[in-house]
Write a protein that binds this DNA or RNA. Structure first.
Length: 150
DNA sequence: TTCGTGATTGTTAAC
DNA sequence: GTTAACAATCACGAA
């Protein structure tokens, strides 16, 4: 089924400043596998790599899956916390406010996305996070790691 | 120069 | 309960 077919904007309430959704177990798995697949097959396109990841995902043992699911659960908790903060900051009512100083990373990311993709809400192509914040320790510094511009 | 496309699965949230 | 959007990734093409 064509997921991107419907342009009905069922979720018109999508806020550009809303926290990004957490990565699922499969996506965490893909992040680990993608570099490996790329290394083995540099000529593979993103779509092909995705297929390969999907195939591998079906083959991995439950133990491995469980490990990724646990990581995904952690991400989910962080996401929920971020949503909480986001709603407290205005819940999209006043994006400018949160962008000013309300939500740390969300605002920064939104600002960055906004600068890069002013047309798109959350920037489907935001990405680039790895290149930019590869030095970012994957802990939970997403609460307050920016704001150095002030 | 900048953005969309493609392809995957899981999760979330709107209806 | 159902359904569709959206999450990461990035080379490449199109405008």
């Amino acid at each position: 089924m064509p997921r991107s077919a419907a342009g009905t904007s069922k979720r018109a309430s999508k806020d550009p400043n809303a926290p990004k959704r957490p990565l699922s177990a499969f996506f965490l798995f893909s992040q680990d596998e993608r570099p490996d697949i790329k290394k083995k097959s540099p000529s593979m396109s993103v779509g092909d790599i995705s297929k390969e990841i999907g195939a591998r995902w079906k083959k991995v043992s439950d133990d491995v899956k469980k490990r990724y699911e646990q990581k995904a659960a952690v991400e989910k908790q962080k996401y929920e916390a971020r949503v909480s903060e986001y709603k407290k900051s205005g819940g999209g009512s006043s994006p400018a406010k949160s962008a000013s100083k309300g939500s740390s990373k969300v605002a920064a990311a939104a600002a960055a996305s906004n600068k890069k993709s002013p047309k798109k809400p959350a920037g489907k192509k935001s990405a680039k996070s790895k290149s930019s914040e590869e030095d970012n320790d994957d802990d939970d510094d997403d609460e307050d790691d920016d704001e150095d511009e002030d």
